[in-house]
Nucleic acid binder design. Structure first.
Lengths: 193, 193
DNA sequence: GAATCTCCTGAACAATCGTTCACATGAACA
DNA sequence: TGTTCATGTGAACGATTGTTCAGGAGATTC
């Protein structure tokens, strides 16, 4: 028998699960297929993960941690508020673009309550971060006074829309630059620069 | 036997299907439950709809037609470009708010190819409409020159995000007013009004 | 009242799925 | 060499699902 270390096998299962979940969605992806893809038997999968749900949750945590790290890194270099907002938006979109598999996995599944609790907390934190950046901009006089929490929710929803678009129709995708431009400057013409 | 006219029964099946799909998602909702909810037998459902997919598609078309009508009505009264954009955004959000069931039904399901083709066309048309409104604003001198198609995609994605938020976490929802304000004026302070 | 048509029933079918468990296998250690 | 333990196997189980179909009931027509 082709024995591998437990950790090695676990990683291969995760890779297979990511691929399968992303390709078929949670409901359609079945444990047999994941096992096959990982080069292991069905029973073997259950040796490393309690059940399908735990397997899914593990993948969720994985990309959240990654995005958190990326965001922190990106914001570290931004001193100006406008630059920080631009960084946040650009990093988010870049992340989504570079992690299609994870995004397909997440963007598809909006059903599960077990999924929601984890994700909701994560997303709430991200909105709080945007609101902080806006508040700093208002304090610095760069941004006009406004409801920062509300503006943060709107910006957040642009990105949420981007994720969904990536999953269901790519025609609706936009560039980070265009997004930053609209968010900062709006549609209406400025009388004086 | 409690006989009803074919059309009456068909409508009751649609009501039951809307409720069931919205509550449990396409994959989880089963034909037996829909039939029960409609006060008919499983076989009876198949008398009126070829299969589960056709039932789902019928509901999809229903809300698209409704939203189209609402939008046309709302835009009829808007002469100014800024007002038109505001109308579009407000109408869209109002519609989503007033049609939770339909939205839950649509927002959840991002998997199906049969679903996508129909929806993609519909959404493409809506983006084109936004772009037209922006172009009119630019031509009128109210809006600054910009890539109207790109801006349209971004505005569209705000609304797409709103739909998803409505389904998975309501904490992320925003007001039409706040959205219009950000889209028109941006974050950055205006030097002179 | 017989024939016909529309509308409906629900048991049965075939397929799929998550999960379990009795059993195997190889390595480590005595 | 024999024992133990981590690791892996895959048939089998129980549950659920979309769909079908042989049959039945009420209305309508002649």
């Amino acid at each position: 028998m082709n024995k591998r270390s437990a950790e090695e096998t676990k990683q291969q299962i995760l890779v297979a699960a990511r691929k399968t979940f992303a390709g078929q969605g949670y409901a359609q992806a079945n444990m047999r297929r994941i096992a096959l893809e990982a080069g292991i038997s069905v029973g073997g999968v259950y040796l490393h993960f309690k059940n399908k749900e735990e397997l899914y949750q593990t993948l969720q945590r994985e990309w959240m941690d990654q995005l958190n790290r990326n965001t922190i890194n990106a914001l570290r270099d931004s001193s100006e508020p406008a630059e920080a907002i631009a960084s946040f938006i650009t990093t988010s979109i870049e992340f989504v673009r570079c992690n299609r598999e994870m995004i397909n996995l997440t963007g598809r599944e909006t059903n599960f309550s077990f999924n929601s609790e984890l994700k909701r907390g994560f997303f709430r934190e991200r909105r709080r971060l945007i609101a902080d950046l806006i508040d700093q901009g208002i304090a610095a006089g760069t941004f006009r006074p406004c409801d920062s929490a509300e503006a943060a929710r709107i910006i957040f929803n642009i990105l949420r829309g981007f994720v969904l678009s990536m999953v269901i129709d790519e025609d609706a995708l936009f560039s980070p630059e265009g997004c930053v431009d609209l968010v900062l400057n709006g549609l209406v013409r400025r009388e004086k620069q």
